[in-house]
């Protein structure tokens, strides 16, 4: 089982993930249309590129956009969850070690205590987001099964990862569950809202260009967020 999950299945997962997400980006860009979107893509590139980058970057900086300023708690949950799901896996000793064994390449890793702390924080954030989905009427009304799937799968990957790092003997159950769930996430990514892994950047770049090229980029104060 372990052999299969870390062998062929891993390759299939990565292939679906990277090819699938690349296809989503390609289809997104292919589907843009200057006249339908009413944005002169390809013109005023200096402003377009600058606003696209700003539009992405601002939202990756705490307290930068007005939304994060107004919603500090949600902002905190957002950053904690995404740090746990994106940065921790990339710089986790156990992950980097596997890659080093396979390909002989490696890079600096997080100290164990920090990786643990960030993972716990991410799990707490995911639970808080789940509570939010139930407790706040304005979030409850728009929540769908799809949203629960995305949130619970993320939480499950974090939790099984954490337990597999801290299991007290007793076989590979947590490790196997962690790998299987993480692969499920990778495979689901192109076909579900996990596609925001790439489409977040596409969408933010597009609205940035919309404002930069058309809606005041030539006149305004350089930002509307």
């Amino acid at each position: 089982m372990y052999q299969f999950l870390t062998g062929p299945m891993l390759w299939i997962s990565f292939a679906v993930f990277f090819v699938g997400l690349a296809a989503r980006v390609y289809l997104y860009i292919k589907g843009l249309h200057w006249q339908m979107d009413r944005v002169a893509y390809g013109h005023f590139n200096d402003r377009g590129v600058k606003w696209a980058l700003k539009s992405i970057l601002f939202w990756l900086i705490p307290f930068k956009p007005m939304c994060w300023q107004k919603k500090p708690i949600f902002q905190t949950l957002f950053f904690l969850l995404h740090i746990g799901l994106v940065l921790v896996p990339l710089f986790l000793y156990a992950h980097v070690m596997l890659i080093e064994q396979a390909w002989g390449v490696s890079w600096p890793t997080l100290p164990g205590w920090l990786a643990d702390a960030l993972t716990i924080a991410a799990m707490v954030a995911a639970v808080m987001m789940a509570v939010r989905r139930v407790a706040l009427p304005e979030v409850r009304i728009i929540t769908t099964l799809h949203d629960w799937f995305v949130l619970l799968l993320s939480l499950a990957v974090l939790a099984t990862g954490f337990f597999s790092a801290h299991q007290q003997g007793g076989g590979d159950v947590w490790v196997l569950a962690h790998i299987a769930l993480a692969e499920a996430l990778l495979i689901a990514a192109p076909f579900t809202k996990f596609s925001h892994i790439v489409l977040f950047f596409c969408s933010r770049a597009q609205i940035g260009m919309d404002y930069g090229i058309k809606r005041g980029g030539a006149k305004g104060r350089g930002i509307v967020w």
Partner: peptide, 30 residues
Amino acid sequence: FRSRFKTWLEICARCGMCADSCFLYTVNQR
């Protein structure tokens, strides 16, 4: 109906950040 709208409808994270941004939500007792 092209990729911009399709993506917007699809990736909406249903986070509810838009609620308080809308004055009609506020004036209609949330």
